[in-house]
Design a protein around this nucleic acid. Structure first.
Lengths: 151, 151
DNA sequence: GAGTGCTTGTTCAAATCTGAACTACTTTTC
DNA sequence: GAAAAGTAGTTCAGATTTGAACAAGCACTC
């Protein structure tokens, strides 16, 4: 057994701040999206990813990885978005098993309508409060962790 | 109407990295806690907060605010932890409406048993990958956002 | 080119989360 | 000190999440 490595004060402060802030921000974002468009945050992220993707479409698994939800959660959400007319399913030409989630025109318009208000929140609570240097440090820090977790 | 303020490349990179990383890390932590002790992350956080609190107890609302969950989610989780014998409810002496969540001895032992493995994950993916300067920048950055969101 | 093992996406049951409605108590106001 | 307004915690219904089990298609081996 190795020694227990507790967190010192600096480490604990960083971890606690990160944890609380990510949850608080998540809640605030959910609230804003729900009020503005009846969307959940995962749903919004799905629309964003699809809008950025070539052909406005992505494979289910790839999309799930991007949005960071389970495959079953994605299946559920795509079904919801399909009901709302914002996304469609198409069969993948190269792989018979595959399913493509495709952004509809209504989906694109919805995103264009919702994005500004969403970004206002992201700015108001996070981005606009940080200096350029802080933004860059955050990116490198987060990216290290992300890479480690994507393996 | 004000102009739409999109995020530039630096801002978007920071936001995307923060978002993905927080979700990925959350998932990894859930997985570890579930495997090691059958606890969810909110449950673990409840135990930590109670262990740090004077009298190893806290009011429900205060605890909900700390852990960043809704009051109803806390009610649910405290009930679960009570069934597991890790927490007890007590009536608040100063306020007849109030309920105190109190950490039991079993709860304290559980936390002592689980904490090292949990902290290993927090270290392995986040803390140990960051320099002292990065940790400090992250704390100040996150704290700004947290303060704004706690108002 | 049949067999074995992966990968894909869905379905399912169980757990959890949220906000709204509610009851009961406290605090403020006049 | 009664009435009004606010706060604490629970209950409830509905939405969402997850992992496990599954069916179907791909890909590699010999």
């Amino acid at each position: 057994m190795t020694d227990i490595r507790w967190l010192d004060e600096t480490e604990m402060a960083a971890w606690r701040a990160f944890l609380s802030t990510s949850h608080l921000l998540e809640r605030r974002i959910e609230e804003q999206l729900k009020a503005a468009a009846g969307l959940t945050h995962p749903q919004y992220e799905i629309l964003v990813r699809l809008a950025d993707a070539p052909g406005r479409s992505m494979r289910m698994t790839e999309l799930a990885r991007g949005v960071v939800v389970s495959k079953s959660a994605l299946t559920y959400q795509i079904t919801q978005l399909e009901k709302a007319g914002l996304v469609e399913r198409a069969t993948c030409p190269s792989d018979e098993r595959g399913v493509l989630a495709v952004l509809t025109d209504a989906g694109r318009r919805c995103l264009e309508r919702v994005a500004p208000g969403h970004l206002e929140v992201v700015r108001a609570y996070l981005i606009d409060r940080l200096s350029r240097a802080e933004l860059e440090t955050m990116t490198t820090a987060m990216t290290k962790t992300e890479r480690a977790l994507r393996t």
